[in-house]
Design a protein around this nucleic acid. Structure first.
Ligand SMILES: [Mn+2]
Ligand SMILES: [Mn+2]
Ligand SMILES: [Zn+2]
Ligand SMILES: [Zn+2]
Lengths: 142, 142
DNA sequence: TATGTAAATGCAAATTATTTGCAATAAGGA
DNA sequence: TCCTTATTGCAAATAATTTGCATTTACATA
């Protein structure tokens, strides 16, 4: 669903923030932009990063992720399994369906649900700043 | 919204599970059933428990909560702040709106949203086992 | 009511994901 | 190329929750 976003966009987010483009950051960003594996957690990213440069450290992965998140370049999701998972904050808003058997994360969007949420909040006298909607399920048997 | 549920119902949940009704459990359950403070976290419960019996321990609070959760007597929610919060699993299903300024937790239910979720999952070939819907917002200015 | 046994407890230590202090390194403007 | 300062890697700190183990307690039975 999300519109394409490549390494360069994430690198620019850092540059705009006046941050230095270091080798570790370049590698981490490249991994985040990879459409191959989506919603990786910090350890996933670390393991892949080490393959490109064995002296990268886990704290640097966390620090880079936090920095990118603070600049709105990536989003962090905390699903029920504990760890945080990350994804480039490009395309339009979407929510997630998690396959309880495989751990696969499927994205979806529902204008209707979004609208209903706003409506409910308004009725309660609130304005939504952000929300979290996660469906946990299993593939329907044929 | 939830239908009233008192200490006895929770105590019975333990009895049914063949568990012993100990003093710490009695106290913890009484705190959970208290309509006064809803969605307390483990530390909230521990602090209140200690007032009734100073030798209660935090591990016992956690162990009791886990046991009650496993037997479906209480529900655990992990909101964005990290800690888990608990509530008796009595009344009908509901979701939560969290006041970002005060931390207050407001309950709501939406048949429409629940139905839309099912629909979305079905279209994706899934059956929902459980879900998490949390709205984070601020009171609308008058 | 007294008693034996397994379940439950309290304490201290372990766990897990993430963060932080600090000395060494490296990015990038001058 | 050089200088300054941000960034790094490492080790140690956090914070919430869990676990090992010796001691206590609930409660079924006598
Ligand atoms: Mn996503
Ligand atoms: Mn609730
Ligand atoms: Zn949404
Ligand atoms: Zn719901």
């Amino acid at each position: 669903m999300p519109t394409p976003l490549d390494s360069d966009d994430l690198l620019n987010a850092l540059r705009d923030a006046g941050a230095r483009i270091t080798k570790p950051r370049r590698i981490i960003i490249q991994i985040l932009a990879d459409k191959g594996d989506e919603h990786p957690d910090a350890m996933d990213i670390f393991r892949r990063a080490v393959r490109q440069d064995s002296r990268i450290s886990l704290p640097t992965v966390y620090r880079t992720l936090k920095m990118l998140e603070e600049h709105g370049a990536i989003q962090r999701h905390a699903f029920v399994d504990g760890r945080s998972r990350y994804e480039p904050a490009d395309g339009p808003h979407h929510d997630h369906l998690i396959d309880m058997d495989t751990g696969a994360v499927i994205e979806f969007q529902s204008e209707k649900i979004e609208r209903l949420q706003e409506e409910i909040a308004r009725e309660l006298g609130y304005e939504i700043v952000h929300h979290r909607l996660e469906l946990y399920g299993r593939k329907t048997k044929v």
